[in-house]
Amino acid sequence: MTNFSHRQIDLSGGLRIGVETAGNPRGAPVVFSHAILTSSVMWRAQASLLADHGFRVLLLDTRGHGSSTPLSAPYAIEDLADDVVRVLDALDIQRAHFVGLSLGGMTGFSLGIRHPARIASLVLCDARADAPASYAAPWDERIDIARQYGCGALAESTVERWFGKDFLASHPYVKAQFVELIAGTSVEGFAGCARAIQKLDLLDQVDRIKVPTTLVVGAKDGVLPEAMSELAKRLPQAVLDVIPAAGHLPNIDQPVAFNASLLGHFERYKA
Score class of each variant (00 low, 15 high):
residue 158 T to Q: 11
residue 194 A to W: 04
residue 78 E to Q: 10
residue 210 K to R: 15
residue 131 A to Y: 13
residue 200 L to S: 00
residue 255 P to K: 04
residue 243 I to T: 11
residue 180 E to S: 14
residue 218 G to V: 11
residue 55 F to W: 02
residue 246 A to D: 03
residue 152 G to E: 06
residue 12 S to C: 13
residue 153 A to I: 15
residue 127 A to P: 01
residue 87 V to N: 00
residue 198 Q to C: 00
residue 129 A to R: 02
residue 65 H to F: 04
residue 168 L to N: 01
residue 201 D to V: 08
residue 58 L to P: 03
residue 189 G to R: 05
residue 212 P to M: 07
residue 231 L to Y: 06
residue 213 T to L: 07
residue 23 G to W: 04
residue 234 R to Q: 13
residue 87 V to F: 03
residue 183 A to H: 07
residue 201 D to Y: 05
residue 189 G to N: 06
residue 19 V to W: 10
residue 261 S to F: 13
residue 214 T to L: 09
residue 245 A to P: 10
residue 114 R to M: 13
residue 172 P to T: 02
residue 249 L to D: 05
residue 42 M to W: 09
residue 104 G to P: 13
residue 229 S to G: 15
residue 222 G to N: 00
residue 152 G to Y: 12
residue 56 R to H: 15
residue 161 R to P: 09
residue 83 D to M: 14
residue 217 V to S: 04
residue 192 G to V: 12
residue 94 Q to G: 15
residue 55 F to L: 02
residue 236 P to A: 05
residue 98 F to H: 00
residue 213 T to S: 11
residue 244 P to F: 04
residue 19 V to D: 04
residue 6 H to W: 06
residue 160 E to L: 15
residue 154 L to D: 08
residue 12 S to E: 14
residue 203 L to D: 05
residue 271 A to D: 13
residue 211 V to R: 01
residue 196 A to S: 09
residue 261 S to Y: 10
residue 104 G to F: 14
residue 148 Q to A: 15
residue 253 D to I: 05
residue 93 I to Y: 12
residue 5 S to T: 11
residue 48 S to V: 06
residue 31 V to H: 03
